[in-house]
Design a protein around this nucleic acid. Structure first.
Lengths: 197, 197
DNA sequence: CGATTTTTTGAATCATATCAACGTACGTGG
DNA sequence: CCACGTACGTTGATATGATTCAAAAAATCG
């Protein structure tokens, strides 16, 4: 059950068998069917979830009830509302499975415990946060500097297979576009492509 | 020279006098006059800078040669291009003093050394990265969900005195607006305010 | 003071959003 | 297996918020 989880950790840190035992005593495996939620806005985010299989999304709903996707988490990724998880304030995010998924959940208490009991896990989180910060900064600058078309192409460069897994309107939401705009962008691109050949 | 720096660290971690001695041997104090640069794009970012006094900005220039401000760093903040600093790839950011400033510089080698020699510094950076990630996520969502006017008001709520220190066109750049748009937003707001009274 | 930088204002333009309708595909229950 | 409902994607017409360009006004600096 926890193999993928341990493999992920092992890519960045050194995990002993003893560490794995400790982890296995402090994490919970959970399955979610498509469209089930790990977190609803208003709740306190109780877990960091590692995605063993499947895929989740976190999103926020604004005053005009438009959804804005913060993050996609396919297998091998983590997802949470870190702000709520740390502060124990109510979250304004929703986290939903967009495919049937298997998760490894780490509660707040376990997270704190594990960082002490397994110093390498503390280091792992250090690297995660740092990497997430850098990646998010890239996303912000592409939001500022690119047109709708460029944003879409840029995303495809980073995640070439994303269109095969994620509904188009969710991609639009992630990019900060409307579904209609993305549809038109794609149409224009396929036209360009056919002209080009 | 390093008092502000140590005070900043001490807000989140416990620093011993011995730690302070170690730090003092591995950091460099540098002064920058207004308009001087800590980093030009194309260079490798060699330092993380703590701002003792003054204020810096980091920004990126896009293909249309528009500037986009990534971060402001007034006294008490850190600034760097973390991506370039870590990977030692060329940076595409510029870091410039927008006021005469005094900085405490930590080189890459020193940063790595200090994280080992002063475990609390490792913890400090963990907290910094985590906090920076959360803050950046808020900024991204406000970019997605708010109008120009709302973005400006939102910024004033977070940094009430920012207009007193930063030229207006830089605020616009930080918010992802043109200087003209921000000027019009402000005009509209002062009108609203006067009507309201 | 003159010179440069910054902010303001106006008019035209543009990219994207909005609203509404339609087409298509999918999956579930009858 | 068909029919119906729901979700998803496309298309068109129109609206809108923000940008662009240009120039004047105001502020700042040496």
């Amino acid at each position: 059950m926890l193999n993928d989880f341990f493999n992920k950790l092992s890519k960045n840190i050194l995990l002993t068998e003893a560490d794995k035992v400790i982890f296995s005593q402090h994490v919970v495996v959970k399955k979610l069917r498509k469209r089930q939620y790990l977190l609803h806005e208003g709740e306190i985010c109780k877990h960091v979830a590692f995605v063993n299989s499947g895929m989740l999304r976190s999103y926020l709903v604004d005053e005009k009830s438009n959804e804005h996707i913060i993050q996609f988490a396919p297998e091998g990724w983590f997802i949470s509302d870190l702000y709520s998880f740390i502060t124990e304030d109510a979250s304004n995010l929703n986290i939903e499975a967009i495919e049937s998924s298997e998760l490894v959940l780490v509660s707040r208490a376990s997270h704190i415990y594990l960082e002490k009991a397994v110093p390498e896990f503390f280091k792992f989180n250090y690297l995660q946060y740092r990497g997430a910060y850098i990646a998010l900064q890239k996303r912000l600058t592409s939001t500022f500097t690119l047109s709708a078309e460029e944003k879409y192409i840029n995303l495809l460069n980073i995640y070439p297979d994303i269109m095969q897994r994620v509904p188009q309107h969710m991609i639009a939401s992630y990019l900060g576009l409307t579904a209609e705009t993305l549809s038109r962008v794609r149409k224009k691109l396929t036209k360009k492509k056919s002209e080009h050949s």
